[in-house]
């Protein structure tokens, strides 16, 4: 059965696109058929993070307008063949993303894929509302920082009122993904702890992604972190998150970087 999942946050720069790429790739690596859809019209970046920026010919808006067939716009990942990308338009007007067009394209994607992952733009405007509208599952990406937590709270309110599920009187399945977490700082009382954020937002936790150099390294190289370095701490956290998404119950841990003896002696702590 096909699922539409939105990766959202309200606030920008918390790791929505990174998480979309990593969750999408991790699901595909587990054998699922996955498409990641960029809803950030005008400021697309999912193509870049996925390393497909030079392969974009047609985009989401072209498909909506009927300028291209869906199959022409989809870009299949060169590393995992069960992973595809539908890029956003870089040049068009935001209004080109119409509710009817989005509904039509998402219906078509549902037929082809097990998971349709929508990468929401920041904010609470049209693009963000359209990205969440058809979702059955929402992943709310939050940093342990006051402005991010506040905006997540706002987004949770919108998920409970402005989605097709909410309009039908049903509950959307919401999950918190805590990113850029620094366990050492949280332990010293310098950063909100996981429990603090969970207490405030009161939605179930999908995973804790530790702050790590690996995330920037992967985006520099244009590869989801789960593909670029599958044994790194953030990749393992994303793999665990994906298992939980699929219904497995796995103990919640904050993965830490595995270091050799030299690294242990001279390396800097990263988490």
């Amino acid at each position: 059965m096909s699922k539409v999942l939105v990766v959202t946050s309200g606030k920008g720069g918390v790791g929505k696109t990174t998480s979309t790429a990593a969750l999408g790739a991790a699901l595909a690596q587990s054998g699922q058929n996955v498409v990641v859809v960029d809803f950030d019209v005008g400021l697309r970046n999912l193509d870049l993070v996925m390393g497909a920026e030079r392969r974009v010919v047609f985009d989401f808006i072209n498909v909506i307008n009927g300028d291209a067939k869906l199959a022409q716009a989809l870009i299949r990942d060169r590393r995992i063949d069960t992973l595809s990308l539908l890029p956003a338009s870089q040049t068009r007007d935001k209004d080109a993303l119409t509710p009817e067009g989005v509904a039509r394209v998402l219906d078509e994607l549902r037929e082809k894929f097990d998971w349709v992952i929508c990468d929401s733009p920041a904010g609470i405007e049209r693009g963000a509302l359209l990205a969440m509208y058809h979702a059955e599952v929402a992943v709310i990406v939050t940093n342990p920082e006051v402005s991010s937590v506040r905006d997540s709270d706002r987004i949770i309110g919108l998920l409970d009122s402005k989605t097709a599920k909410a309009e039908a009187g049903e509950k959307i399945d919401k999950h918190l993904l805590l990113t850029r977490y620094n366990a050492a700082r949280a332990a010293r009382g310098e950063m909100l702890k996981t429990e603090d954020v969970l207490d405030i937002l009161s939605i179930p936790l999908l995973g804790i992604i530790p702050e790590s150099e690996e995330v920037l390294r992967a985006s520099n190289l244009g590869a989801p972190v789960t593909l670029n370095n599958p044994t790194s701490a953030p990749a393992r956290a994303y793999f665990d998150a994906v298992k939980r998404l699929q219904g497995d119950s796995i103990a919640m841990t904050v993965p830490t970087a595995r270091r050799g003896l030299i690294g242990k002696l001279f390396g800097r702590r990263v988490a």
């Binding site: 006051v146 506040r150 010293r188 009382g189 310098e190 909100l192 603090d196 405030i200």
Partner: peptide, 18 residues
């Protein structure tokens, strides 16, 4: 630590906003 302050500020703010 500053985290307890962050936690309390958020709790008050969000209670009102909700």
């Amino acid at each position: 630590g500053s985290a307890p302050v962050a936690r309390e500020r958020l709790q008050i703010l969000l209670a009102h906003e909700r």
